[in-house]
Simulated assay, not measured.
Amino acid sequence: GATRIRSMKKRGDEFIDIYVGRPPKDEKQRIMGQLIENLQQSGLKPLATALAFEKLKGEFNMTGEEIARSLGKPTAFVSKHMRIGAAP
């Protein structure tokens, strides 16, 4: 939501369209939904993306390929961000 509001203010929009639906059934679904939305808006910074991928990998035992398939992104995209998250 915060990314959407910042984008709206940058554009000078007065109103924002929102969709209110069922809440996600679990934490994994919530993270995936946020990632998909934020990646589509191109408002998510690479480090934030990397940390979300690491959470999916660590907490839900997802592989890079599973994350990529779930998000509709190339495996190389996920791998690159996971390397960012592992950097000192």
Rank of each mutant, 00 (worst) to 15 (best):
M82N: 01
R11N: 14
D13K: 14
R30P: 04
F15E: 08
I31Y: 01
K9H: 13
A52G: 00
K25N: 08
I31L: 07
A76Q: 09
E66H: 09
G72W: 01
L56F: 01
S79I: 00
D26V: 03
F15M: 11
R6V: 12
T63C: 03
G33W: 04
S70Q: 14
K28Q: 09
A48G: 11
G85Y: 05
D26E: 00
G58E: 14
H81A: 06
K28W: 01
S7C: 13
A2K: 02
D26H: 01
A86V: 09
I18G: 04
P23V: 10
N38Y: 10
A68W: 05
I31G: 05
L51M: 14
G43W: 04
E66Q: 11
K57S: 06
A50F: 12
E37H: 10
G21N: 07
P24E: 06
A86I: 01
G58V: 13
A86Q: 10
E27L: 11
G72Q: 03
K80V: 03
R83D: 08
T75L: 13
F15C: 07
M8K: 09
Q40A: 14
L47Q: 11
Q29I: 09
G33Y: 00
S42F: 09
L44C: 04
P24L: 06
S7P: 09
P74R: 04
I84F: 11
Q41I: 13
K55R: 14
G1A: 06
E27I: 11
R83C: 03
L39N: 05
L51W: 03
G33L: 05
A76T: 11
Q29A: 07
L51S: 04
A50E: 02
K28L: 08
L51G: 01
I18C: 06
K57N: 12
V20L: 14
L47G: 05
